[in-house]
Design a protein around this nucleic acid. Structure first.
Lengths: 255, 255
DNA sequence: CTACATTGCGTTACACTAACACAATGATAC
DNA sequence: GTATCATTGTGTTAGTGTAACGCAATGTAG
């Protein structure tokens, strides 16, 4: 829903494939917490995942990256589809006339939202500090939420979020998850907190250090993080070549 | 495409969601080889995956199980969606008028096949001996293929098959793959051949035995397989409770 | 009844994991 | 300036799991 489309009545059926939508679970990491980007639809109390539709000549992946560009300002976002949500009743709430009134002023074809949608779930990993959360024309808010503080979301979005998190855990040894969630340089404790947040359990500091350095995917920089309390920790960055090489076979061993 | 719909001109758009299709990669295991079920469309030389469309009140999963019931005769098939294929050009071949002529006699609305489809990929695990491969109204053959002997398939079906196989490998420790591909009772060498076929590499016989029994998911029966050459191997069956219990955490350790 | 490929069980060296110890560091409090 | 103290970097050890191999038992084929 780019700016050029807002000038006249917007007719989604001319631009998007019917029945197909996508929802993005955008993960960030900040202050040792996993965050997720949520938006609030106009006229509704519940929050929901940023979503959109697939253009008639787009791949689903391209559509998702387009949506994320609009919501985050980011261009090259790490994206993975993880599940298709196709319960025929998953859109019931949305069809209620009441809940659509608020967006009718947006010059959006309400009929479009009444059809049945099968939604492709994507998860995205972004560097928290690079994101500028931006609402779209049918939302009046868009912001980060602490994963632990997310309550009832619209439609089946809690389910989608849960499934995304499960996928993230399972793919931790197969996808460059650390690389995409952390800034270019980071400390060992920060990397460990990220792993702990994703896995939902504590890890032994010393064993974590040995194991992660054993993969040979990190470069230790000749720098420390100063200005922070206590002993200054070493700074690291990922060795991208070796990281991707190692991920092909999967990082060995469980957490 | 049940029998009742064949009596008059079949109008898919009244029964199925537009733009959405599904393709099933049906795996079987026979004579120590992984097999895949393929169908040949009328009037085309290439083979392809069994597929179908999603009814206007069906989940994608239900639609896939309906398709599989028709192709295999089986009712309760183990099914997992694994990827969505949404390249806007993935259906180009199919739109050629020539390739649609042959099925036009089937009283099927050719226009239906000219639209763009986003396809949901499912993989299915079935017990080879229980399957009765059955062509549908637009196919003139349906049969098992040895995985190694599959050549160029229609559309992007080679890609779908490859992605299914990758998924199968990654999920070997998280899904009841052995249980669904093997008959109720089996020998240790048979189970090992299955693992080897999926992983694409040889495993040490003795270490495999120790590891797989160590999970506690097998029940050793008081029976041996006789009539076959050489020493009679013990028969096993899965302990379903313990199998599912162990899969929740994932079978530990790599192959 | 002998040969032999295959099965079942065992052994050993090595790598990895879990659990814990200890000294070094650097901002903070006084 | 200096003592405090949470935190970091590195090390140790016992236990567990893995890889690579040995050997006797078995059941069909010849």
């Amino acid at each position: 829903m780019s700016a050029s489309m807002e000038s006249s009545m917007f007719t989604p059926h001319k631009y998007f494939l019917a029945h197909i939508s996508l929802d993005c679970v955008v993960f960030g990491f900040h202050e040792n917490q996993l965050k997720v980007l949520l938006a609030k639809l106009k006229g509704r109390d519940e929050w929901g995942l940023p979503g959109g539709f697939v253009g008639i000549q787009e791949t689903a992946e391209y559509a998702a990256s387009r949506v994320l560009k609009e919501r985050t300002g980011l261009d090259q976002v790490f994206l993975q589809q993880f599940y298709v949500f196709s319960d025929p009743d998953r859109g019931e709430q949305l069809k209620e006339v009441e809940s659509l009134k608020a967006i009718s002023g947006s010059a959006i074809d309400i009929e479009w939202f009444k059809q049945r949608f099968i939604s492709i779930g994507f998860y995205a990993l972004v560097e928290f500090s690079q994101v500028e959360p931006t609402p779209d024309v049918i939302s009046d808010a868009c912001q980060w939420w602490d994963l632990a503080e997310v309550s009832k979301l619209m439609l089946d979005h809690n389910l989608i979020l849960q499934k995304a998190l499960e996928t993230l855990r399972l793919q931790l040894n197969y996808q460059p998850i650390g690389y995409n969630l952390l800034p270019a340089t980071f400390t060992m404790p920060e990397l460990q907190r990220l792993y702990e947040a994703i896995l939902g359990k504590q890890l032994d500091r010393r064993n974590f250090h040995r194991k992660i350095t054993g993969y040979g995917i990190l470069k230790k920089l000749n720098e420390r993080r100063t200005g922070v309390a206590h002993k200054a920790p070493d700074l690291y960055s990922f060795d991208l070549d070796k990281y991707h090489q190692a991920l092909k076979e999967g990082l060995q061993g469980g957490w």
